[in-house]
């Protein structure tokens, strides 16, 4: 098991390293002059030179890369051009919102998907099964931002139960949570459509296994067999998809924050793009890619917790 963990950790670190190279290269090697982008076409040559110097653009690329990574590791992502404050400060302010949104989204996704998927599998071939499959087929095709708009039309414009967007700040915890309800639902509904299908087919697959028959032959009720014997065994493929979905959810927050005007990292990335604030965009892209990679790494760790067969593998 130690070997498995060590291997996974090494590959995790290597992937992060490679991702940082890709991000840095995309933002720095591609043709284009950041100083020109920032100052605009009518900038004087002197001003451009001064800004290049200030941005450290005159140093060789490799030096700049290691400076960037070195600083990033200590939490220093440079200074945002447009906000005039350290990028890390900007991120720190907005991170809690994005994290709350992503976590509540994944929790709701998993709860909904397990309930629907297990329910469908337990009623295999009956009306409930078909209903879940039909809804999830549609759900997979619905863009999250459009679903958000439909939710806004119904629950904010017509019924006025929830605000259509905006965020009052954590100082008003109740209002803050209220304003996160629609975004969370919009994120989770689409993802749970995918996960419910995976859950259903995984549960059906496990229900055909001999050990499930053994459990039934030992006189346990369907419900007990389902939750104690079938579901744990069905979890491995489910966890894989949940890991991938967490990544999708985190990037999904970029879209959803823009639909609901929530001041999180997703909004920040767009403000930075329109402000040509490259250090901020670079830091945020790196952060999002790192979250995606980390989610997949965590999935590999969870496998070990679920499946004892992996533990004993040399």
């Amino acid at each position: 098991m130690t070997y498995y963990l060590a291997r996974r950790m090494l590959s995790f670190a290597l992937t992060l390293f490679a991702v940082s190279i890709v991000v840095f290269a995309a933002m720095n090697v591609l043709p284009g002059d950041p100083a020109l982008t920032i100052l605009g076409l009518d900038a004087t040559e002197d001003a451009l030179a001064a800004l290049r110097e200030q941005l450290g653009l005159n140093a060789p690329l490799v030096t700049r890369y290691f400076l960037w990574v070195g600083h990033a590791l200590t939490g220093d992502f440079g200074v945002s051009h447009s906000f005039g404050v350290p990028v890390s400060e900007l991120i720190g302010e907005r991170l809690p919102l994005t994290v709350s949104l992503a976590l509540s989204g994944i929790v709701l996704t998993v709860v909904l998907a397990l309930a629907l998927g297990v329910g469908a599998a337990a009623n295999h071939g009956k009306a409930g099964d078909w209903g879940v499959m039909f809804l999830s087929q549609i759900g997979i095709a619905i863009p999250a931002f459009w679903l958000s708009m439909l939710l806004v039309i119904l629950f904010a414009v017509k019924l006025r139960w929830f605000p259509p967007g905006g965020f009052p700040g954590w100082g008003e915890p109740l209002d803050a949570m209220r304003s996160l309800v629609l975004p969370t639902v919009a994120l989770a509904l689409v993802q749970s459509a995918v996960l419910a299908r995976v859950t259903r087919s995984s549960v059906l697959e496990v229900m055909r296994q001999d050990y499930v028959r053994t459990a039934r032959a030992t006189g346990f009720s369907h419900r007990r067999v389902l939750w104690l014997h079938v579901l744990p065994n069905a979890l491995v493929p489910i966890v894989t998809i949940v890991g991938m979905q967490f990544a999708a959810l985190v990037t999904g927050t970029i879209v959803i924050e823009n639909v609901f005007y929530l001041p999180g990292l997703g909004r920040l990335i767009f403000q930075s793009i329109s402000n040509r604030d490259l250090p901020t965009v670079q830091a945020l892209v790196m952060l999002f890619a790192a979250i995606v990679v980390t989610a997949n790494f965590v999935v590999d760790l969870v496998y070990v917790l679920i499946d004892p067969r992996l533990k004993s593998r040399a």
């Binding site: 992937t15 991702v19 890709v22 990335i269 040509r276 892209v285």
Partner: peptide
């Protein structure tokens, strides 16, 4: 290819938009 999976389309589009404009 594994590395490519670390970049959802949105992140890649954001990088391109930041450098070249949308």
């Amino acid at each position: 290819a594994d590395l490519g999976f670390a970049f959802p389309a949105l992140l890649f589009a954001i990088m391109l938009a930041a450098v070249f404009g949308p």
